[in-house]
Amino acid sequence: MELIGLLNYAVFMAIFIGIYSLLALGLNIQWGFSGLFNAGIAGFFAVGAYTSALLTTPESSVHLGGYQLPVVVGWIGAMIAAGLIAWPIGKVCLRFRSDYLAIATIGVAEIIRLVVKSEGWMTGGARGVNKVPRPFGDLSYLYSQLAYLALVIGIVLIVYWAIERQISAPWGRMMRGIRDNEDAATAMGKDIKARRLEAFIFGAAVMGLGGALFAHFNRSITPEAIDPMIATFLIWIMLILGGSGNNRGALLGVAVVWIIWSASEFVTDQLPTEYAIKAKYMRVFIIGLLLQIVLRFRPEGILPEPQGTADNPELKTFQKQEGAAK
């Protein structure tokens, strides 16, 4: 009995790690490879979650919908919707230094939160969207969890593969070139604004997919499901700690931070109520402090971005190809 409970918990944790992995991979495209500061991750997450939920749920009196489309359509819709939100923001802000993007994305997340809360006819208001269909949801509890975990792992692997491919392609090298030396990239005739916009939209779409997976896993999505600042910030610390610019680092960071975060929640829940609430905020403080420590002492993270040295022949071949092209 104990063992089953433990297994259930482990699977539950693993699914969450998978969902957060998508968010971290999305942020890695934006920040790690392109140097774009997105402080509104929770906003893109929410757009994805709500889009997919509304596209796939049966008709309801409290929110828009009744389309009952297949889950796959919902997930694709989530990616498109998140990308569409990213497009105008990127269009306006990517001309400037990333500081402006940071402020604007904070604003976007705030507006999305407002829309979700006040447009009840669309999102169900505080009640949210329920009865979101879950793939393999008809199986018994444990099997259903395991099947969903397999699905999440599959999607993470596909996204991981897609990003790796894209990043080792000329596009990815160009992105890193733009990130590291904008002037040089401009001088080489690269269209910086357009490339950055592509990266921003690509990353946002991946985040939207993460939101969709979350909604279908929970079978519902409500405005309270996610605390925008905490969620956004957790993704940031995951990526920075794991190693921005390195997809494996991002995945590792997600696992490490999520386990620390959940374990600390487990500890604080044991405390008497009066301390438990305070301890909840202490956890946030410690996560903030962790970011400061990582930024100061190990800014490259646990797994740094590969720099194309002798023990990384993959990047060397690229350099050779580049040399040959010249």
Binding site: F37, F233, W236, V284, F285, G288, L289, Q292
Partner: peptide, 9 residues
């Protein structure tokens, strides 16, 4: 980024 962390702290 650091200031975002400070905000939370």
């Amino acid at each position: 980024m650091s200031s975002l962390g400070i905000a939370l702290m």
